[in-house]
Design a protein around this nucleic acid. Structure first.
Lengths: 210, 210
DNA sequence: TAAAAAATACGTGCCAGTACGTAGGCCCGG
DNA sequence: CCGGGCCTACGTACTGGCACGTATTTTTTA
């Protein structure tokens, strides 16, 4: 397997934790996305990539996508400190086969790797809970309708976050101020927020700000 | 020294990285603040505590304060993924003797520990940069005045973030709506924001929301 | 204890944001 | 071809936030 993390301490820790597991061999380790791809080319025998999500430069999710695109048979196991909806969903979309929190013990980590290597999936308990919540949300929304933020709405949201007034936003996007107001109202309705204050937090929680 | 981190992988990694450094002995390791304090009582020979800032339950900063209060001779070396102004400043106020990023190499880590153990301080390059920026800000503000957010202002900010109106905030804090407006105005001035929208982002960037 | 900072409070006035209603043009999929 | 989602757009009305000025009391700090 290939180990990708920009923290030497974590890399060393995982290496050490896996030493007793003689069937799991750490073939190589990388400190960034680009290096990981190079190593993947040089080591065709790699079957599992254990990668940290938060890395400078190419993010873990981007790397996951790149791996999926170029090495379809390689299984990606995500490693992260967080388990928020947006991130977990991104990893799944990127084709991740599993998601382990950094609080995982040696036992959990090795189990996860074996599961993933065997073609199955693995998710830490908290991550699984997040997934279930997502499913419930998705399910409960089958009846009324999924409040998905559209492209245009996201644009407006980003400009709101930069403290622009409706008029400024209108001029920036070459549309009428009335239109901006409408988008704004729709955003408030969809997010169930009372004002722009809540909107900003929604945007941040869902990673909608570039 | 005592090692405090809720991530087994990191603990194991640091242990392993320090093994070759025969003069640095890891006496014990804890997964949370409470456990760390117990271990500190049981191991009076501990001179340095290397602690992660992000832990469930008692935060790293709280633990640092507790250590400073009860074991004045023990030196605290903070370990963190981030180096934002607010966090670094908090650690310093809490009496931290150093601040190392998790991206640190084995060499940097051992240097940091030796420095701190010897009564000196150590800060990773990026952290030092942050500190310098802070100093420059502080220095440049000696003329006009340092815009520090007060306790009361922080309370109001948190309620604003929860989408409460001025009137609601006033009722919640048993003060006049006018007073809330004044605090709000002062916050806008201090943060150089145009509206509550910017305020929220300021609050999030500076970790002012519980 | 005196000076400085923080918290409290009021008034006046403007405008941006919000609520609510309505509607036409566009494009996609059934 | 038509329904539905999206983007576009207008009008009316209300109100909460914000600007600007001023001032007293309490707490902290020097």
């Amino acid at each position: 397997m290939l180990l990708v993390d920009d923290h030497p301490m974590v890399v060393e820790g995982i290496r050490q934790m896996l030493l007793p597991e003689t069937d799991l061999r750490v073939v190589a380790q990388a400190n960034g996305g680009e290096q990981a791809l190079e190593l993947l080319s040089a080591h065709p025998e790699v079957r599992v990539v254990l990668l940290d999500l938060s890395m400078p430069g190419m993010s873990g999710v981007e790397l996951a996508r790149a791996i999926r695109a170029g090495w379809a048979e390689v299984r990606v196991l995500a490693l992260s400190m967080f388990h928020d909806h947006a991130t977990v969903a991104e990893v799944l979309e990127a084709g991740g086969a599993g998601y382990v929190l950094k609080t995982a013990s040696r036992a959990e980590l090795s189990t996860a790797i074996r599961q993933v290597a065997a073609g199955r999936t693995y998710f830490s308990q908290d991550v699984a809970d997040t997934l279930l919540q997502n499913l419930q949300i998705t399910a409960s929304l089958e009846t009324p309708g999924p409040p998905a933020i559209t492209r245009r709405e996201r644009e407006i949201l980003q400009l709101i976050a930069r403290e622009h007034s409706n008029l400024e936003i209108a001029e920036a996007l070459f549309i009428s101020e009335r239109t901006v107001e409408t988008h704004r109202r729709n955003l408030l309705t969809k997010t169930k927020c009372k004002s722009a204050v809540g909107l900003i937090q929604y945007a941040i929680r869902h990673n909608l700000l570039a």
